[in-house]
Nucleic acid binder design. Structure first.
Lengths: 315, 315
DNA sequence: TTGTAAGCGTTATCAT
DNA sequence: ATGATAACGCTTACAA
């Protein structure tokens, strides 16, 4: 009756249902998983939790997992391969049904283990050098390019960029996309107009100080994350400049703070929900057909511009 | 050897260790939980995920759980008793070792079930009408009071408040604390100076419009959450006022955005980490001694003022 | 259609 | 100190 077999008479079914009600019987998932080899569990690894982007991943993953009737176990890897490994081992020994990994380290042995077990695994927000593993990532080159095109169309001639860490691939891609599209539009992005830092508020503040110190200040700056963009604006305004009259600022991510600051931040939106819904649709299909692979790998999702008041055309 | 029994000769232990290495043996947590009745799991329920306060809870809970060698399963209840119930049932059937609940509904049957099973359960960020269940909450009355005292000391005479929903206890407590301490200091908080809304940015914006429409505007406003405070500032500035010269704004929570907006927001800090560390210290002790109860119930943690530039004394 | 038995990977108990 | 055996709660295969 519990497993919904068809071969059971209506009367017995009712009798059993009654007993279930009476005794408050609830199947034990762990015992079940012992036989069925399914822990009714999805694992989600993120490199950070207190960060709106990852909070979105957790939110949507929880939603999808529960919709499918699975529990969600989360692990904070902090980009530490050792923690990553421990979390993976824990998941495996719980018989997880699927894993979503945000930012796996390249050295991870996870892909191998997943293949061994034929465990659905999707990597999001960071490509992985393994063609077999489905991954979902933003078109980071395009993200940079749409900003460069905006600046060029808007008549900006001296533009600047606050880049993420050089050793992070998505930051390199964003930089390359911006630089290349800028060049294509006749804009050059020379040395003092690129400031490299981390994806944090403080980087934006420090970058603002740097740009303020230049004899020829840029008229528009793109920061590769909203927090850094907010840091830029913060220091510019503190310094007496007006955004966007004196200088335009554009961010990236479109987190909640972007619309809350004054002036509201023009930014490049990342479709966080789409990452998760696509990941789950792959997982879903893989659970039904273990040999399924997404047609395109990596699956690339597209960024889009969100125009708000922190940016203004010069022409 | 695996369970660390003493009754095993060094040579056998070595031999077994070798075999473990060779075969890559990893104990199966589900099978183990079947016998030991421990799922090596902590459950955390939150009413929302994309919200810095709850993200902090998730972060610290993950940290503590992993430190203790447990996995962390999270559930988003969305303040819906039905989802709450489903999540609880799921946890129970997984043999969770402990549950941390943020904002349980009063009607929940969880306390009963927890008692039946003698399952460590701690409620955080919201009191529960059950003396047996340890809970950890902020001294919300004090939170309101310290702001009122700040305003009074600072020479403000017309003060205002953006309150949370009347049907949420912690909002009522904050309001009561503020109003009472204000009265004690000779300040009265009359009808048009209290704006009731939700804990969101938009509430702050709407409240700003309301206060701007008054013939006699307040000189200082307290919002019961940072997002609403940021909404206030946003609209005040948009309207041409200067914060804090024309009007002081104070928030509550001390989330990251508070220091990022311009001017930086004076706010009441909630010690998010302390909620979790105290919850886990109770859980820890209860796992060792099932009869343990915290000496004080509820455990009350204290808020504190974080002074930044959005507030200014008049005297 | 229903009932019975074996086995999933552990841990605990009991002989050896 | 070691090895054998039962039991945890479930699913599956097979017998009735």
């Amino acid at each position: 009756v519990v497993s919904g077999s068809a071969n059971v008479e209506a009367s017995t079914r009712a009798r059993v249902q009654q007993a279930i009600e009476d005794t408050g019987y609830k199947p034990n998932i762990n015992a079940r998983s012992l036989r069925s080899r399914s822990g009714q569990l999805v694992g989600l690894a993120v490199p950070q939790i207190v960060n709106e982007a990852f909070a979105h991943f957790i939110h949507f993953a929880e939603q999808e997992a529960h919709r499918m009737g699975y529990g969600l176990v989360i692990g904070n890897t902090e980009d530490d391969p050792e923690r990553e490994q421990k979390f993976i081992d824990d998941l495996l020994s719980r018989n997880v049904d699927a894993i979503i990994f945000s930012r796996v380290s390249d050295a991870s042995r996870l892909p191998m283990k997943a293949r061994e077990r034929n465990l659905p695994l999707v990597v999001i927000d960071r490509g992985i050098d393994d063609e077999d593993i489905p991954s979902i990532e933003l078109d980071n080159v395009e993200a940079g390019a749409i900003v460069a095109r905006l600046f060029a169309r808007g008549g900006h001639h001296r533009v600047a960029m606050v880049a993420g860490p050089e050793n992070v691939r998505l930051a390199r891609e964003r930089s390359a996309g911006f630089t290349k599209a800028a060049a294509a539009a006749g804009l050059t992005l020379q040395e003092p107009y690129v400031y490299e830092g981390s994806f944090e508020f403080e980087t934006g503040v420090a970058a603002a100080d740097h740009f303020l110190s230049l004899a020829e200040r840029p008229t528009a700056v793109w920061a590769q994350c909203d927090l850094a963009a907010v840091g830029l604006m913060h220091r510019f305004v503190e310094h007496g400049l007006t955004v966007p009259d004196d200088i335009s600022v554009v961010g990236m991510d479109n987190v909640a703070i972007a619309r809350m600051v004054y002036p509201p931040l023009t930014t490049v939106m990342q479709p966080f929900e789409e990452f998760c819904s696509r990941a789950f649709s792959i997982i879903h299909r893989q659970l039904e057909d273990p040999s399924y692979r997404p047609e395109a790998n990596p699956v690339v999702v597209r960024p889009s511009m969100v125009l708000r008041e922190s940016y203004r055309n010069l022409n």
